[in-house]
């Protein structure tokens, strides 16, 4: 083969970088549009308009922090925030305690593991609407748990959380736990299954009882899994909306209002956009407060490895 065949006809043209692998860049357009256009753009847009007096339609008429001042003096918003805090903390503690207990039980090489796991996880496949409506029915004081216990002879037994503004969050919590614990269980179970078998063997040779191995060795080893699950669950709790709509519609009165519902109602029912944007910005701030330490931790963890 002659070398002339390989000689370039002219000076090699340097390909333009942007057009190299052009298809991959075209294929990335949806991601770019969504990440920059919707996620970044939309967030900035909402934050910007939260400083305006937009009402029925968005308009750039600056009012500074007025919307926020008004928000924090609205009773319904304060109730929403308090409810979210109560629901969030209680459901975090309970889902993690119960989820870990169940995961540990399923991890004990038991029989019918698949059956138990299927039962414990199926509520997670159901929507919050379905979940809310079933529990609304079970907690119905006329026909549900209360009437049955009364029927057993405990005439004064009262359990009507959905009709008692001081207990309504308990009702939501029961339904929320039922729907979400399976998820935590599965995540933690996956974490437990990822633990080196030899660790368990070593602890048996050392004569450490199983419960102590969990507490002293395994749980610390699962810290990253716990933290990730925590972040996921927390950011999910902040979004709590459908369940409330289906179960209580925020009632009795405003006693089970939550921020996500507040935002929706303000934006689309009361058409007070500026106020809605301020409230949703506060939700974003809440998530950021949870997320930023986690992101830093993840980042630092990667550097250490």
């Amino acid at each position: 083969m002659s070398s002339a065949e390989h000689a370039p006809a002219g000076p090699d043209k340097r390909p333009i970088r942007l057009f190299r692998n052009l298809w991959s860049k075209i294929a990335a357009i949806p991601m770019i549009l969504v990440s920059v256009g919707i996620f970044v753009g939309g967030t900035i847009w909402t934050i910007v308009y939260s400083f305006t007096d937009s009402g029925l339609l968005p308009r750039l008429n600056w009012v500074g922090l007025e919307q926020y001042e008004r928000l924090w003096s609205t009773r319904r918003w304060l109730v929403s925030i308090e409810n979210l805090a109560v629901f969030g903390i209680a459901s975090l503690i309970l889902t993690f305690a119960l989820g870990f207990l169940l995961a540990a039980l399923l991890d004990r090489k038991i029989r019918f593991e698949d059956t138990f796991r299927t039962i414990l996880l199926y509520p997670f496949a159901l929507s919050f609407i379905v979940t809310g409506l079933v529990w609304q029915w079970i907690l119905n004081p006329e026909f549900g748990v209360q009437s049955i216990v009364r029927g057993l002879g405990f005439e004064s037994f009262t359990f009507d959380p959905l009709y008692d503004s001081s207990k309504v969050m308990i009702g939501l919590l029961i339904a929320g736990l039922w729907q979400g614990t399976g998820l935590i269980m599965v995540i933690l179970l996956a974490g437990l299954r990822g633990i080196d078998e030899d660790i368990w063997k070593a602890s048996r040779v050392d004569g450490i009882p199983a419960w102590k191995t969990y507490v002293v060795i395994i749980i610390p080893m699962l810290k990253p899994v716990f933290i990730t699950a925590l972040v996921l669950v927390t950011s999910g709790i902040v979004k709590l909306y459908d369940l409330v709509v289906a179960m209580t519609s925020g009632g009795p009165g405003i006693s089970s209002e939550v921020p996500a519902k507040f935002v929706y109602d303000t934006l689309f029912t009361r058409q007070n956009l500026g106020q809605g944007f301020a409230a949703s910005t506060m939700m974003l701030v809440t998530v950021a407060i949870i997320l930023i330490p986690w992101a830093l931790l993840q980042f630092r963890g990667k550097k250490n490895d």
């Binding site: 080196d196 030899d198 070593a202 040779v205 050392d206 002293v216």
Partner: peptide, 19 residues
Amino acid sequence: EPNERGIGMVFQSYALYPQ
């Protein structure tokens, strides 16, 4: 039980308690 047998064991993956 393993701890009552008078044995010590060393594993391939070391199995040290990481924390």
